[in-house]
Every structure is written in structure tokens, then in C-alpha cells.
Write a protein that binds this DNA or RNA. Structure first.
Lengths: 342, 342
DNA sequence: GATACAACTGGTAGCGCTACCATGACGTAC
DNA sequence: GTACGTCATGGTAGCGCTACCAGTTGTATC
């Protein structure tokens, strides 16, 4: 019958302790913390004093259970080591760091099945929002997202049919712009080199192909791809393969900067003049592309901005202020540098 | 008085629904799910059937509240874009992906204050384990870790006084080994170039200094550092600074591979022969160092393995099987390549 | 046949918080 | 003065799950 003082909880102060100390009801403490405007100035101060004195911190688990809503953002990316996603994550993180939201992340490893599994894990927790990379979810994933009961932002790409909201840019246009630039600079036998070949890479390839066909330059033998994960080492190998296949190659549009760097290093090693004999273009415009020798032309993609904006949109949606246009195209910028200026 | 059917929860099946359908008590369902061994074969099958039929998924928030333990690993790293931490995260992730643990991460931005704040956010949630980068926590952070009531693994470095467990290697030894190698190869005026200069960088510098002093080669003017975050671009600038300061420079030990790459590119640009005129050594051995031209000597660090092992140790501790030695040194490996072979 | 013990199962009572509804104290309008 | 809204506050009843303890059954032991 005597109060069985908190047998499980490690004896941390609870909202009831604060309420007792402040001489108010527990619910008033709860309100003072979550909606200060709805509690009188006086009580608010009193409660704050009690909170400070006891060192009270609300239990997020109890909160989540009672309100059927966890203060958690779920983030699903296909890779952690790909610095592109690392920057998206950084943008997400920075935009959330002064809120009380926590971030939970999942690595889909470019697998639709894994994505489904992760959504199944994230869902029951009732996250405040979900941010997922890509727009090619499986039907099951789509349904899971649609029924998640929280704002959903698909990032990295834009497309016609958002689950809820989208922030990204057109990989097709990026690929096309890069290729058109090389054609303009006088390159003719321009190869495409790509690894991993996820949906976004596929669309860059499609953009490349569109540009090449429009110029009457397309030749299937110019395309060298592999499903193997991308790396600088692999870039070097693929470049060698491409050159062996088409000795007249005079340029390469690389699916990403790692591949481009591998190609560049191989050119150095084989004493192939860049940009004179062979032009090189990358994708993403990592920091090092500008510093490389010669500096490498690349498509600058707004990765960090995608992260930031996706959070801003999710936060707005949580607050009930949905954007008029749920799809935001942040564009890209072609950075023309030495590696294609002959 | 009539059952007010689940007014908040979106009508998902609860453990009570499963229990009713299976004709058992709720607690038995709970046990069948968490400790199958303690429930008879018969009931287990019956319960599983009910679970499958209803599509029941336990509510992690309710679980966390009732058991005072969330199935969450908290991970604190100082940076997301530094690929070193990205690989640690990947290791952590891969080791946890077939468990039901979720991963919550925090970015301390190399700030002790921010680390304290994050621990304060993570703590009340009662995570299953905490993994934090570094061993130089502030006294407040240390206390928060000690009182977290869960296994704690400090990663990246080893040291004498773990909060709980540690997995890493000696940055001092790594810095010394790299420097000794350069001395052995005949370099004399070997500079140290470092950005960010977090505690680990400081220890690499100390290792460099120890090696240089032991050989009677140390000269304070050889050291060029900045608190600015590291990047390839910055590496190039620092290298130029170092060379301007000490024109007789014949080698550089770079605090990390980004810096080394910046130095290498600058050598190309300025037609400085590597390794003949100047030798270059990096730290971490990113994939690209082997492919670079010339390939770059670097200290290979077990980043992915650190992530994996930290989880393995935490999981063992959760299961009550603490390792006999709470500190594991995974070592490093000096990769000698063209950039220092003159 | 009584006793002891293990193996299994269930009831009860919370975990710490918030949704919902009720209450009382004020205004304001008529 | 009565009716009605608004504001500030509180009580009650869960949210969905598990810790704790109790009860039941079956089996081994003497």
C-alpha cells in the first residue's frame, strides 16, 4: 500500500515529482513544457524552477507511448560511405540539431527488400517524419510510406508521383548537360563509365545517351558499366576497360567523381594527356575535383541543401503548413574546368 | 463503459488482440516473442499464427516504457563527412542490421559541449548501449556516460582509463611509424601538415615529433597546422604554406589522406617530383591512395573493424558476457608505396 | 501418498506521460 | 442578473507493454 517508489526507473524525477514540488497538477507541468503559451506566466516560472532544481528530463519513451508519436526522424539512405549521402545526412542533422528530434537512420544497401524491412522497423515507432533516398520504392515500401501517418520526404531526385513530398534534382538533365558540354568542347568519342548503376546512375546514363544521340554520336560500345559498388580503384579499372574496348576514345563522362578520379590517375600513369587526348567529366563535384591536377569538370549537386530543405519541409508539414508545391527541384550546376578545356 | 476502442493508436493490433486470438494471456504472448524458450512448443506455434494473421508488430515505445530499456544504440561521432567516421558507422550498422536494434546518431562537431548536450538527449531514452568516438570526454560527459546504465564503448583510440570499454588503436604509434618510415627512406626535412587538430591529430603529431626528435631532426618550423576542418583544398594550401616556410622541405607527413592528396595535386601542378624531390605520407589509407599516381604511402586504420567490434562488445555486455580485457587495440598497418620510395 | 520442485501460464499493477473532459473563474453581451 | 464564451487548471483514464508474483500442473523423490 505504501508508495512503491519507482521500482524500475532508476529513480529519476518524474513529472509527478515536478508537479508536487511546484504545487500544481502533473498535466500543467506537461503543458508548461510543451505549450508554454497555455500556462500562466506565474506557474510557468514556478514549474521551471522545480524542473531545474530536480534536473527533470521528460522520458521520451513515455511521451511517445502516451502521445502515439515519437520525436524521431527516420532517415533511409542506400549507403553510408558514399560521401554524397553523408552530406545529405549532414544537412538533415544540422537542420535538426537545435530541435529535440532524434535521428534514426537505416542503410538500405541499395536493396528494395532491405528498405521494406527497415520501414517495417521504423513504422511501429510512429516517427515524426521519414526521409528516404530515391523515388523508386517497391510497391510495398510505397504503401508503408503512405500509411506511416507522418510526413514523408523523398530526396535526391524529383519525379512526377511523390508519396508526399520530394526534394532533389534531375539526374537525367545533369547527365545530359555534362555530355553536351563535352560535345561542345569538341569531344566526339565520349564514353560513359558507371559503377553501381542504381536508378539515379541509370538516369544519368539516359541523359548521356540523349545528348549523344541528339548529336549523332551514340555508340553502345562507348558505354561501360558494372553493378559493382563504386570506388576510385574501380574507376581506374573501368577506364582501362573502356579504352581497351574503344581505343579511339577521346573523352569520358564518369557516373561520379570517384570514377573520374580513378580515370584521371590512370591517365597520369599511362601518360595520356588530359584534356588534350582525353577529356574527363565527373558527377557531384566533390571538394577535391577543383583541386585535382588538372582540375576536373563535374556536375555540382546540392546534397547538403537537399538535406536541409527536406527537414524544413517535414517540419513545416508537422506544423500543419504544407508547401503549395510538394516537389522541389534544387537543380545542379555544371562546373567546367581544365579536364575538358582543350 | 463500453470498450473505447483504442482512441489514439491508429487501430493497429496490440498484444491483447494477439492474446485473445491465440486464447492465451497477454504476458504469454510477450514471452513467446522475447524468450521463446520459456513457452511451450504448442503455444508458441499458436501465438505465432495469431501474430502472422493479425500482422502484429510490438510497439517499441510501449516496450521501452515498460521495460525501462529502449532497443536503441546511441552513436556519437564528431563528423559525418569525414569518411573515417562514415566507415565506423557502416561497421556499426552492418553488425546491427539483423538485430532489432535501431541506431540513433549524434554529430558532436568536435565539440565537448555538444557532446554533453547529446548525451543529455540520449540518456533519458535509456539506450541499450552507447558508442562514442574518442577518449577525451569532458568530466560532465564522462559522468553522463558512467551513469547511463548501459554498456559504453569508446572508439577510434585506446587509452588507459576507459569509461567501460574501448576499441581503437594508437594514433601516436601510427604517427611515429609513418615518420620513422620516411626517415628510413632518406628524407630529412620532413614536415607535418595537419588540419582540424582534434585530439587524435594531436597524438599523431606527437608521434611524428617523437620520431623526429629521436633522429635529431625535429624543427618546430616543420610543423604546419590549422584548426580549420580538413579538406583536399586545404591540404593543397597548407602544403604551399609549408613549402614557403621551409623551402628545403623534402617530405611531408600529412595528418590524413585528404591533406596528402591536396599536397600531391599541388606537387603535380608545381612540377615537384614525388617521391624524388618530396616524399608524401598520408593517414587512414583511403581506397584512392593506392590508385593515386604516384600511389601514396599511408597508415591503414581499421575503421570498419572498429565499428564491428564495438557492437560485438556492446552486445556481449548486454548479454552479460563482458570481455576479460575491456580495451582492445586493433593496431594499424603502414602501407609503403611509391610516394615515399626514392 | 505426501512432499518438493521444476516448468509453464496468467493476473495485477504499474512504467511516465498525455488525451480527453470537467471545473471554476472571469469577462462580455444582452 | 442571466447566459455564454474563454482561459487556466486539474482529475481520470488510459497508451501497449512487461516486472513481479502467484497459481497450476506434471513429475521425481522418499
Amino acid at each position: 500500500m505504501t508508495k512503491p517508489r519507482s521500482r524500475r526507473g532508476g529513480g529519476r524525477p518524474t513529472i509527478a515529482d515536478v508537479a508536487r514540488k511546484a504545487g500544481v497538477g502533473a498535466i500543467t507541468v506537461s503543458r508548461a513544457l510543451r505549450e508554454p503559451g497555455r500556462v500562466s506566466e506565474d506557474l510557468r516560472r514556478q514549474i521551471q524552477a522545480a524542473v531545474d532544481e530536480l534536473g527533470y528530463l521528460p522520458d521520451p519513451n513515455a511521451r511517445a507511448l502516451a502521445s502515439a508519436r515519437a520525436e524521431v526522424f527516420g532517415v533511409l539512405v542506400p549507403s553510408l560511405t558514399n560521401s554524397v549521402f553523408a552530406e545529405v545526412l549532414r544537412g538533415i542533422y544540422d537542420s535538426l540539431s537545435d530541435s529535440s528530434y532524434r535521428i534514426q537512420f537505416g542503410n538500405t544497401h541499395y536493396s528494395g527488400l532491405e528498405e521494406e524491412r527497415l520501414l517495417q522497423v521504423f513504422g511501429p515507432q510512429r516517427p515524426a517524419a521519414l526521409i528516404v533516398a530515391g523515388i523508386d520504392q517497391t510497391p510495398i515500401s510505397r504503401r508503408l510510406l503512405e500509411t506511416a501517418g507522418c510526413p514523408v520526404v523523398q530526396v535526391m531526385e524529383t519525379g512526377p508521383d511523390p508519396v508526399d513530398m520530394m526534394v532533389g534534382f534531375s539526374h537525367f538533365d545533369g547527365g545530359r548537360a555534362a555530355t553536351e558540354h563535352m560535345i561542345e568542347m569538341g569531344y566526339r568519342r565520349i564514353g560513359f563509365i558507371g559503377a553501381r548503376m542504381d536508378p539515379r546512375s541509370q538516369r544519368r546514363l539516359a541523359g548521356y545517351r540523349a545528348a549523344m544521340e541528339a548529336a549523332g554520336l551514340f555508340d553502345a560500345r562507348l558505354v561501360t558499366t558494372t553493378p559493382v559498388p563504386s570506388s576510385v580503384t574501380l574507376g581506374r579499372e573501368l577506364f582501362r576497360d573502356a579504352l581497351a574496348k574503344v581505343p579511339t576514345l577521346d573523352g569520358v563522362f564518369c557516373n561520379n567523381d570517384d570514377i573520374a578520379l580513378g580515370a584521371l590517375f590512370e591517365c597520369h600513369r599511362a601518360s595520356i594527356a588530359v584534356p588534350k587526348t582525353i577529356g574527363i567529366t565527373g558527377f557531384n563535384d566533390l571538394d577535391m575535383m577543383e583541386v585535382a591536377f588538372p582540375s576536373v569538370t563535374s556536375v555540382r549537386t546540392p546534397r547538403y541543401e537537399i538535406g536541409r530543405l527536406s527537414v524544413a519541409m517535414a517540419l513545416a508539414a508537422i506544423a500543419g503548413k504544407r508547401p503549395q508545391d510538394p516537389v522541389v527541384d534544387l537543380g545542379f550546376e555544371l562546373k567546367c574546368r581544365e579536364s575538358t578545356s582543350r
